[in-house]
């Protein structure tokens, strides 16, 4: 178990973060270089003001017509994405590990709160799963890969929750949790989880088109 522990919390962490950071940079550089080579006109329409106007509306819950049309989904989506970042970044155990390695630390969430937020993320994932199965318009466009990426995102939280409570075979769950987190990081640049990178660009372009050319709202 020591060698497994050392491997997944040592070299594998470097690999995961390395692939995540390099992968994200790679995807962004490829995107921008391809745009400048094949569709440079996009840059001539991009406009900071209109981009921010559009992004601003879409990152605020209920600020767009479509968010208001789906109140439950809107709440779930926003809560999910906020917790998705909040929990891992401000989790005490994560900060403790970083602190031990590099003497860098920051404020942590109380474990009880983090636990509740973890359950929230898991519940949101279940909501997305049920929606995928039950809503005809979502089911129609669902591929196995959609379940896979949902599982990739849910796994670190499920294993993290079980590991924290030390249910079901503690040391194995700990290792699974670390591996699940690393898989998610690695998957982000190379799956549709890359919407984390690209959504801001697609939104900004549409915002710029609507603001600058179409003189209309896009929300």
């Amino acid at each position: 178990m020591h060698s497994v522990y050392s491997f997944v919390t040592g070299p594998m962490v470097w690999v995961a973060f390395g692939v995540f950071v390099a992968g994200c940079l790679f995807r962004l550089v490829v995107l921008l270089s391809q745009v400048s080579r094949k569709e440079p006109f996009i840059f001539s329409y991009m406009n900071l003001k209109w981009s921010l106007r559009s992004i601003g509306h879409w990152i605020v819950p209920f600020a767009t017509v479509n968010w208001r049309r789906h109140p439950v989904l809107t709440v779930v989506t926003f809560v999910f994405h906020i917790c998705l970042f909040l929990v891992p970044i401000f989790l005490l155990s994560h900060i403790v590990l970083v602190d031990e390695a590099w003497s860098i630390s920051w404020a942590a969430l109380p474990d009880g709160l983090a636990d509740a937020l973890t359950l929230t993320v898991i519940a949101c994932c279940l909501f997305f799963l049920v929606r995928r199965i039950r809503s005809p318009e979502v089911k129609f466009v669902t591929y196995p890969s959609d379940y896979v990426i949902l599982a990739i995102v849910a796994a670190p939280f499920v294993t993290g929750f079980l590991a924290y409570h030390q249910w079901f075979g503690y040391p194995v769950m700990f290792i699974l949790h670390v591996i699940a987190g690393e898989i998610m990081l690695i998957a982000i640049p190379f799956t549709r989880l890359s919407h984390m990178l690209f959504a801001v660009f697609t939104r900004a372009y549409m915002g710029s088109e609507f603001g600058g050319v179409r003189k209309a709202k896009d929300w």
């Binding site: 060698s3 522990y5 590991a163 030390q166 503690y170 040391p171 700990f174």
Partner: peptide
């Protein structure tokens, strides 16, 4: 390489 290393 002996003894506990994981939080729990």
């Amino acid at each position: 390489a002996k003894g506990p290393v994981m939080c729990g």
